[in-house]
Amino acid sequence: MRWIATLLTCCLPFPVLAHPHVFIDTGLEFVVDDAGNLTHVRVTWAYDEFYSLLVLEDMRLDQDGDGVLTEAEEKFLSGFDAQWVEGYNGDLVIRMGETVIPLSGPLEPQATTEDARIVTTHLRSVEGTPVPASDLSIKAFDESFYTAYEVTRPVTVSGPVICQIDRSDPDIDAELAQMQAFLRTLDADYDLEENDIPLVGEKFATEIRLSCPNT
């Protein structure tokens, strides 16, 4: 998270951009059918320790503080992050060319803890016509960058066909330089709440490319 800390430091004079962030380690499982179409995506979110502590305390879970939830507590926690408002994209964008692939809301939510961190999973189905997974671009990001996603957990494919997964990580130094240059153009009393706030989340997102043979 070194580069995220650097970003926060560069933004300290500007309160809106200096909000504390939620840090999430992300994993993705792509489910494809025998025709090479993408049918589902299972998403894993591993929350940072501080945010996990806040959630557990707020929900009065793990009262013994051992970082391990009982089966009943896991059941109670499951779905806490799956109550999405209408229009929320789940901080996941899948594109085929310029077309954004529509996904369902979260299905089969589950939650547990690992090393005092909350880890959740949910399944999303591809809606509409079948989508050939021949050249898809996938990014996990919050465009406001209030939540920072890093694809550090496994990215896999489940299904009867062999697929290729490639990843392209952002040029963090270049993006930070652009952000710092933008901030230097602003007056110290510039009110970001009343003006356009730069949406930088996608600039710091890892791109996953999925290619499966279409049969």
Score class of each variant (00 low, 15 high):
Leu17His: 05
His21Lys: 14
His40Ala: 15
Ser137Cys: 02
Asn37Met: 13
Phe50Asp: 15
Thr129His: 12
Ser125Pro: 04
His122Gly: 06
Tyr88Lys: 12
Trp45Cys: 04
Arg117His: 12
Ile118Pro: 00
Thr39Pro: 03
Pro109Glu: 09
Asp34Glu: 15
Leu53Ser: 13
Thr39Met: 13
Phe50Ile: 15
Asp58Leu: 10
Asp33Gln: 10
Glu57Met: 09
Asp81Lys: 08
Ala72Lys: 09
Thr113Phe: 08
Thr39Ser: 14
Asp66Gly: 04
His40Met: 14
Val55Phe: 04
Val119Trp: 06
Asp115Arg: 12
Val68Pro: 01
Val41Asn: 01
Glu71Gln: 12
His40Ser: 14
Phe80Glu: 07
Tyr47Leu: 12
Met96Gln: 06
Tyr88Ile: 07
Ala46Gln: 12
Pro130Phe: 11
Leu103Met: 07
Ile118Val: 06
Ile101Trp: 03
Thr26Ile: 13
Val93Arg: 11
Thr121His: 12
His122Pro: 02
Gly36Val: 03
Lys139Pro: 00
Leu17Pro: 02
Thr39Tyr: 07
Glu98Gly: 01
Val32Lys: 03
His40Pro: 01
Leu28Val: 04
Leu107Ser: 07
Ala133Lys: 00
Glu114Gly: 05
Asp48Leu: 10
Tyr51Asp: 11
Asp142Pro: 01
Leu103Thr: 05
Val32Tyr: 00
Ala18Thr: 04
Gln83Pro: 02
Phe23Asn: 13
Leu53Asn: 09
Val43Thr: 10
Pro15Arg: 07
Val85Thr: 12
Pro109Arg: 08
Leu123Val: 13
His21Asp: 11
Glu29Leu: 11
Leu38Lys: 00
His40Gln: 15
Leu77Tyr: 05
His19Glu: 15
Glu114Trp: 09
Phe50Glu: 15
Gly90Tyr: 08
Val119Ser: 06
Ala35Gln: 15
Gln110Cys: 09
Glu98Cys: 02
Ala82Val: 04
Thr121Glu: 10
Glu127Phe: 06
Leu77Gly: 02
Thr44Leu: 08
Gln63Pro: 01
Leu56Ile: 03
Gly79Thr: 08
Leu103Asn: 00
Gly65Tyr: 09
Pro130Tyr: 14
Met96Gly: 00
